[in-house]
Amino acid sequence: MRQTTKEAIAQTFEGLLEKRNIDKITVKDIVTECGVNRQTFYYHFRDIYDLMEWALAKSIEKYAGTNLSAGMDWQEQIRLLFHFFYLHRTTVLHGYDATNRMQYERAVVKRASQMVRERIDAYPQAADVPEEKKEFIATVYARGCAGFLLEWVEEGMPDERHVRLDDYFLMIDGSIGHVLDKFRKPS
């Protein structure tokens, strides 16, 4: 029951975001449109940015659930993540401002680092590298990828093929093994 109310609020918000920028959307707009009262909104979300982050994570999750499959190549996964943003171009652009820049970044870093992490774990030497170091490596690579994404959003999100992911992959793929060697525990 609660869950559905929460989702209904998120859906209303996304609907409004199709039409106008986030700074033109108020809690009042959302609750009126959704037919709930203010306290119900605040039961679930601290403010509009909190809602934005939740809605974004939720739809990425949904998209991943239907489009990503086990054993899929990690580069393909990251491409799909970019494609997800491309598909939601209008809302992503309407939701983009100084505060949300961080939220987008967090969402992408979280997803992308999981993907890179899978790649890292496939290396034989990964077993000798401490957990926190592997997390660190994954985050560094994911941040690079998130940087490209945000730059692309700022350019108004032309066709995602404009993002130079190929070069990025080329660079990373060869380097992961090398980086892991450097972080190996002395045995």
Binding site: Q39, T40, F41, Y42, Y43, H44, R46, D47
Partner: peptide, 12 residues
């Protein structure tokens, strides 16, 4: 209690 939780969240 629901309103109190909403207030906690709004004024975090």
């Amino acid at each position: 209690k629901d309103d109190l939780i909403a207030l906690c969240r709004k004024h975090n």
